Amino acid sequence: MSLLELNRVQAYYGGIEALKGISLTVGEGEIVTLIGSNGAGKSTTLKSICGQVKTSGEIRFKGEAISSWLPHQIAASGIAHVPEGRRIFPKLTVKENLEVGAFSVKDKALVKERIEQAFAYFPRLKERYRQAGGTMSGGEQQMLAIARGLMMKPDILLLDEPSMGLAPVLVDQIFEIIQELNASGMTILLVEQNAYHALQIADRGYVIQTGEITMQGKASSLIADEQVKESYLA
């Protein structure tokens, strides 16, 4: 059974149809990537899963229909969304940003334990423990955004353009961390414009164009496909 399943999902911004009946699945323990050009509907797909845009169709998580749930209910069910542009709290320290990520965890000892787990993945954040998030580099802010998403110990991590705006050496580092998280058992749905990097680490992939899934398959097959190469890997 799939951990996450979208069946003919349509999404709307006002009267504009942004997703035109897409279907995709993410199995437990997989990295699945969604690639496509700017404006294709990648970010809208993640927002639809998280209840942030109006949708029709069916979204199921762990076998339950969640389309009618509120965003905070979806987050509490085990779905963590790390949005495009990081969106950390710039005036809060690293520690405070992580604590916000565990907003519904009442056990302070458990929050502290999860912060230490985050530092195991991101040692740089431990060095910046009391530093305001907005004063850190773009790469450090991206690490903080991912670490904050892990604070609820989600079943699936939705990552939206984690490499955007980063220097190549930091892009490699972020993708290594994504692989480490997956190796530890984390299921990941990755939206990424850097299609080559994404397909290199993913199990499966989907190509989205103007709100429709146009191709899908094993990542190794997509990365070898001539049409994908010409459109996204050139």
Score class of each variant (00 low, 15 high):
G57V: 07
A183V: 06
G139V: 05
N97H: 10
L233F: 08
A147F: 03
R60E: 09
S104A: 14
M186L: 14
K126D: 11
L4T: 10
T187Y: 05
G211D: 13
S68I: 09
V94K: 08
D203F: 06
L34D: 06
I213P: 13
G36M: 00
P83S: 14
F122P: 11
N97D: 12
I66Q: 08
R204A: 15
R8G: 09
S2F: 05
G134Q: 02
I59D: 09
E30A: 00
V169D: 01
I213T: 14
E176S: 15
V82D: 11
Q117W: 10
Y13C: 06
K126C: 00
S37W: 00
I35G: 11
Q117C: 02
K54W: 08
Y129E: 08
E113L: 13
L34N: 01
T214S: 14
K95H: 12
P83D: 08
K126S: 03
Y196L: 15
L150Y: 13
I174M: 11
G27M: 01
V105P: 01
S67M: 09
L110H: 03
R86S: 10
I74V: 12
Q200M: 12
Q73I: 00
K54C: 07
A219V: 08
S56M: 01
D107Q: 04
T44K: 07
I22H: 03
Q117R: 13
Q193C: 07
L170R: 09
L189R: 13
W69A: 12
K229N: 02
I22T: 00
H197L: 12
A40G: 07
A219F: 04
G14H: 11
A118I: 04
N182E: 05
N182W: 01
K91M: 05
K95M: 00
R87A: 13
Y121N: 06
E58R: 05
A118G: 10
Y206R: 12
A80V: 01
I74S: 08
G139W: 14
T135E: 09
T93L: 04
T45I: 05
G14N: 13
A202M: 08
G149M: 07
G78Q: 07
G21E: 06
Y13P: 03
E5H: 02
T44A: 05
L24N: 02
V105L: 13
I74N: 06
E226M: 00
K218A: 15
L189Q: 01
N7C: 11
K153I: 02
I156K: 04
H72N: 14
C50S: 11
T25H: 13
Q141A: 12
G15N: 11
T135Y: 03
A18T: 02
D107E: 11
E84H: 12
A219H: 06
A18S: 12
G149I: 03
T135W: 00
K218M: 15
G41Q: 07
K218L: 15
F122E: 09
I16F: 14
G21P: 00
G185R: 13
K47Q: 15
L158W: 06
K126I: 05
A183Y: 03
P71M: 05
L222P: 06
Y232R: 00
Q52W: 04
E99W: 02
E212D: 14
G165Q: 03
I31L: 00
W69T: 02
S67P: 02
